[in-house]
Simulated assay, not measured.
Amino acid sequence: MQIKKIITRILLFSLTLYFVACKSDRQKSITISGAFALYPLGVKWTEQYKKLHPDARFDLSAGGAGKGLTDVLTGAADLAMFSRALTPSEQQKGIVLFAVAKDAVLPTFSAKNPLADLIHREGLTHDQLKNIYLSGKSITWGSVLDTIVNNNISVYTRSDAAGAADTWAAYFGGKQDNIKGTGIYGDPGLADAVTKDASGVGFNNVAFVYDISTGKKRPGIEVIPIDQNNNRIIDRQENFYDNADSVLAAIADGRYPSPPARDLYFLTKGKPTDPGVIAFLKWILTDGQQYVKAAGYVPLPAEKIQGQLDQLK
């Protein structure tokens, strides 16, 4: 009789451990870290996925593409949001990239700038922008717009390791470290710094320049139009910065240059093996694509999506 009681207790204890383990597996969080560029879409995707899978748990944070990469490599995150190409040394670390959407980095200036109308009308050329952001020289607004205004342009850049900064610098053949300016942490901080400085310029991802719910530019920030044909006027085909929809259309059809238009990624260390991570990535690349445009991004073409799905097989 005593032996039966002992066996019964062992069985009950084992069953308890089994159900606790099942519950733990079911509620295991997927940790996602990285680029501010992808963060708003990451929030949208996790919210929608949890509606379909109530047991799914996510720990999502933005801290820059560099932090996301480091977190994945050290095991602190399952997925990284990433917003630039890998360097040759990073390619040797067994990283697997999954392109999930597309957006662009936009050059910005303050709505307080007294020359705002002239900037919108004439824009700045590639070479002028390169000189402003990379030369480190004191440059006045008057010298680039042929006016008598002698206010020096204040350049703001990212202080964190950022895909946006790397992508913007790549437009001029450089890297993030080549941008000369005051370092500000994060996309929101950089937008805020430029907004407050009437002489300031910076750069931001689309979702931090435009309010995606309204399509309008966020209060206080403006986009520097790029004069791509160097004729010192923003022609009709170059004039697409008024609202989010027109910018996204220009990114999609190539009217906005690449870089600073670019693919956005989730990345893993090696091919993912966690069933929860694989299921989430598959959903992002299939049903989850319906949320891309509404969140302020450009969907990827079907053939590119299929290539990403093939990596999960």
Results as ranks from 00 to 15, higher is better:
residue 54 P to Y: 09
residue 55 D to A: 14
residue 55 D to C: 07
residue 57 R to W: 02
residue 57 R to M: 05
residue 60 L to F: 11
residue 62 A to W: 02
residue 63 G to D: 13
residue 64 G to E: 02
residue 64 G to F: 03
residue 65 A to S: 15
residue 66 G to V: 01
residue 67 K to H: 12
residue 67 K to W: 07
residue 67 K to C: 13
residue 68 G to V: 01
residue 68 G to S: 07
residue 70 T to E: 13
residue 70 T to F: 06
residue 73 L to F: 03
residue 74 T to A: 14
residue 74 T to V: 14
residue 74 T to W: 09
residue 77 A to Y: 03
residue 77 A to T: 12
residue 79 L to I: 06
residue 80 A to I: 06
residue 80 A to T: 04
residue 80 A to S: 13
residue 81 M to V: 11
residue 83 S to H: 03
residue 83 S to Y: 00
residue 84 R to C: 01
residue 87 T to C: 00
residue 89 S to H: 02
residue 91 Q to Y: 00
residue 92 Q to W: 00
residue 92 Q to M: 05
residue 92 Q to D: 01
residue 94 G to I: 00
residue 95 I to E: 00
residue 95 I to V: 11
residue 97 L to P: 01
residue 97 L to V: 00
residue 97 L to H: 02
residue 97 L to I: 00
residue 98 F to K: 02
residue 98 F to P: 01
residue 98 F to D: 03
residue 99 A to M: 00
residue 100 V to M: 09
residue 100 V to P: 02
residue 100 V to L: 06
residue 102 K to E: 05
residue 103 D to T: 15
residue 103 D to A: 11
residue 104 A to Y: 04
residue 105 V to A: 10
residue 107 P to V: 02
residue 107 P to F: 08
residue 107 P to Q: 02
residue 108 T to H: 02
residue 109 F to W: 08
residue 109 F to P: 04
residue 109 F to N: 01
residue 110 S to L: 11
residue 112 K to F: 04
residue 113 N to A: 09
residue 114 P to L: 11
residue 114 P to S: 15
residue 115 L to Q: 14
residue 117 D to W: 09
residue 117 D to G: 14
residue 117 D to L: 13
residue 118 L to N: 13
residue 118 L to I: 14
residue 121 R to P: 09
residue 122 E to H: 14
residue 124 L to S: 02
residue 124 L to A: 01
residue 125 T to C: 13
residue 126 H to E: 05
residue 126 H to K: 14
residue 126 H to I: 03
residue 128 Q to K: 12
residue 129 L to D: 06
residue 133 Y to V: 03
residue 135 S to N: 07
residue 136 G to P: 07
residue 141 W to G: 06
residue 141 W to H: 08
residue 142 G to E: 10
residue 143 S to A: 15
residue 147 T to R: 06
residue 147 T to N: 07
residue 149 V to H: 14
residue 150 N to Q: 15
residue 150 N to Y: 10
residue 151 N to D: 15
residue 151 N to Q: 12
residue 153 I to K: 14
residue 154 S to Q: 15
residue 155 V to M: 09
residue 156 Y to A: 04
residue 157 T to M: 04
residue 158 R to W: 07
residue 161 A to N: 10
residue 161 A to L: 11
residue 163 G to V: 00
residue 163 G to L: 01
residue 166 D to M: 09
residue 167 T to Y: 06
residue 167 T to G: 04
residue 169 A to W: 04
residue 173 G to C: 11
residue 173 G to S: 09
residue 178 N to S: 15
residue 178 N to V: 06
residue 178 N to Y: 09
residue 179 I to S: 07
residue 179 I to A: 05
residue 179 I to W: 05
residue 183 G to E: 12
residue 183 G to F: 12
residue 183 G to K: 04
residue 184 I to C: 13
residue 184 I to M: 12
residue 186 G to N: 00
residue 186 G to A: 12
residue 187 D to E: 15
residue 187 D to G: 15
residue 187 D to V: 04
residue 187 D to R: 07
residue 188 P to N: 05
residue 189 G to A: 05
residue 190 L to H: 08
residue 191 A to N: 10
residue 192 D to C: 03
residue 192 D to L: 11
residue 193 A to F: 05
residue 193 A to R: 13
residue 194 V to F: 04
residue 194 V to E: 01
residue 195 T to L: 07
